[in-house]
Amino acid sequence: MTPSDDSSPVPRSGSDPSAGRWSNLERPPLSASALRRALVTDGGLWTSAELVSSTGSTNSDLAARAAELPEGAVLVAEEQTAGRGRLDRTWTAPARSGLFFSVLLKPGEHQVPTERWHWLTLLAGVATATAVSRTAGVDTALKWPNDLLVAVEGEERKAGGILAERAGDSVVIGIGLNVTLSAAELPVPLAGSLTLAKAAVTDRDPLLRAVLRSLADWYGRWCAAGGDPGASGLQETYAAGCSTLGRTVRAELPGGRTLSGEAVAVDGEGRLVVRTGDGAEEAVGAGDVVHLRNG
């Protein structure tokens, strides 16, 4: 998982969790027992909540255990050393500077057809953006397909990202969110964090709880609708919060082809529809999309 595919933070001195649980009081640790009490309830989606001080990738860890774990397993890491994003990008971030976690879902158990499982990336984006906006008190937007944007000094910055991966009959969704990273800890100007966006709340505990509760809510609606993005309201809600729509974009497609035009819609397959200068429309299902300055 990654907070941002092309603007990820790099590790800084003092981020080694072996330095001590309370070595950085400005970035207090999460509590595994508190998370379990809040999230693991009878009849709820989340069946377990595990917290580790450091790991390579929470997505890889959960994927390796997907067959033996029930749906609803949550794995949270205070630090990732080999976090992964889309297009095989990697990054690491200072310990306890953000939220780095993965969840295990099994939509087939809810009779959701496999051809609709790719909507889980967009679903997680909607759930995360909604929860962060309400809890942290910041405006959020989504960049297709998987980046969470916040405003920093009037500019859009990438502060979060999502990576959904198939693991047999399961889907592992990794979510990363930059919370307290400072400007000095960001490698490129286009990165951001909740602190830089002047969020009212940067306590990771309520933020994590809010995101997981929002994810459970949206997943429940989606499953109840058989994974139909229209009937569940997912497609409409994603489009309403997607800042890519209405923008001039450049899509760098597999095979080295480039497509430029206006992003006009997200279709029923979750693809970005781009209208080129000659009026033709093409749906983009994979690739890297860059927002270009309009005008």
Rank of each mutant, 00 (worst) to 15 (best):
L148E: 00
A141N: 09
S170C: 15
T180G: 04
G160T: 03
T202K: 05
T121R: 03
V138H: 04
G161H: 02
E156H: 14
A124T: 13
A129L: 10
G160H: 04
T128C: 13
P206E: 07
E155R: 15
V172C: 08
G174Y: 00
L212Y: 04
A131F: 04
L208S: 03
V172M: 02
S214L: 06
G160N: 02
G174M: 01
T180D: 08
T128N: 05
L212M: 07
A124L: 10
L208C: 06
L149C: 12
S170D: 14
P189H: 09
T195V: 13
P145Y: 05
V171L: 09
S193R: 01
A210F: 02
L163G: 06
A127C: 12
I175K: 01
V132F: 04
T140A: 08
A164P: 04
R166Q: 14
A151I: 09
A167H: 10
L148K: 01
T130K: 12
E153I: 08
A191H: 09
L123A: 05
R166D: 07
L196G: 10
R213K: 11
V126L: 12
E165W: 06
G137R: 02
W144Q: 00
V132C: 02
L190V: 15
A124W: 08
T121A: 08
L163S: 08
G125T: 06
T135Y: 07
L215R: 06
L177A: 04
L208A: 03
R166G: 12
V152T: 10
P206V: 07
S133D: 15
L149V: 14
R204T: 13
L149K: 05
G154R: 08
D169R: 15
V152Q: 03
V201I: 08
L181A: 12
R204A: 08
T121W: 05
P187W: 05
A129C: 15
V172N: 01
L123F: 07
N178D: 12
E153W: 11
E165R: 14
T121I: 06
A199I: 06
G168Q: 12
V171N: 00
T128V: 09
A127P: 07
E155I: 09
L207P: 00
D217I: 10
L190K: 12
T140C: 14
D203Y: 10
L186K: 03
A200C: 09
S182Y: 09
L148R: 00
A129Y: 01
S133R: 15
G161R: 01
V211W: 02
V211D: 04
L186H: 05
E153R: 14
A164G: 11
A141V: 10
K158D: 07
